[in-house]
Design a protein around this nucleic acid. Structure first.
Length: 250
DNA sequence: TCGCTTGTTGATGG
DNA sequence: GCCATCAACAAGCG
């Protein structure tokens, strides 16, 4: 989403209008109303809040959430639409919302309160996390650390893959009970979140280079990029976790 | 055909 | 009240 934000900030200084290709992508308005509310105005600011993209225009804001497979792509005006393009933001250039699985969505907000209401409760943003904020967010909680990292109300911006990456860097077992984590480990976890998120955001995606755990994600017999031992897969917090039993002991 | 997948939400049960 | 699990959403892939 950080990459999508950069793309929009660079190419979307003015909104001519929003062309909705697949009506189901607009979640809280009729496509015509979304277009009417946002057309023919300058873009004041493009912000990211956790996994949300917020385009602040003069009279209203457009919110986008990309689900698992959604993306924002730059396209020339004459580039053909494919079946996965759901909407086109017409401006200085065209930005298209593309999504294979249709879990991405667009929302219209007419003021700041509306934005907050749509996004709902969010924890501190992973990219601006501090050790103190992380400690506060985890305080008094039970359950696995991985489920907490993926919970947007606790820390905003981390999903399944980034959480695995962060825990691997911090050498913490994904199933580790929050109640047993000591301050030194919280500090280590915080450093891992900041480092992993900063490098991913800069790249515009989670790097799949050999030094990253993510490089082993879809490998049949994954091995640890650090100790080269075999990695384990298990289900934690309802999603598949990849972790190193040697580097991340329970 | 089955089981899996980078996200979120709501129901249900402990 | 908090937490875990599951189903649903949806479509592609091996």
């Amino acid at each position: 989403v950080a990459g999508f934000r950069r793309l929009a900030a660079r190419h979307l200084h003015h909104l001519d209008g929003i062309e909705v290709v697949d009506g189901s992508v607009v979640r809280n308005a009729w496509p015509e109303d979304l277009d009417v509310a946002l057309r023919d105005q300058d873009v004041r600011r493009v912000a990211r809040r956790g996994k949300w993209l917020v385009v602040h225009a003069e009279r209203a804001s457009l919110l986008a959430h990309f689900g698992m497979t959604g993306s924002l792509v730059l396209a020339g005006p004459d580039a053909p639409l494919d079946r996965y393009h759901r909407a086109v933001l017409h401006g200085d250039a065209d930005l298209r919302v593309r999504d294979v699985r249709r879990l991405a969505g667009l929302w219209l907000a007419t003021d700041d309160a509306g934005i907050d209401e749509i996004i709902g409760p969010q924890g501190p943003d992973a990219a601006r996390l501090t050790t103190g904020r992380l400690a506060a967010a985890l305080r008094g909680r039970r359950g696995s650390i991985k489920a907490a990292l993926m919970d947007q109300r606790i820390v905003a911006g981390l999903g399944n893959m980034l959480s695995d990456e962060v825990l691997w860097v911090a050498r913490l077992h994904p199933g580790r009970d929050i109640a047993t984590i000591v301050p030194r480990e919280v500090a280590c976890l915080h450093a891992a979140v900041r480092g992993v998120v900063a490098r991913s955001a800069r790249a515009g995606a989670i790097p799949r280079t050999p030094a990253w755990l993510a490089s082993q994600r879809s490998v049949a017999e994954p091995t640890c990029p650090r100790c080269h031992g075999p990695l384990e897969r298990s289900r934690i917090g309802g999603r598949t976790s990849l972790w190193c039993p040697h580097c991340q002991p329970r």
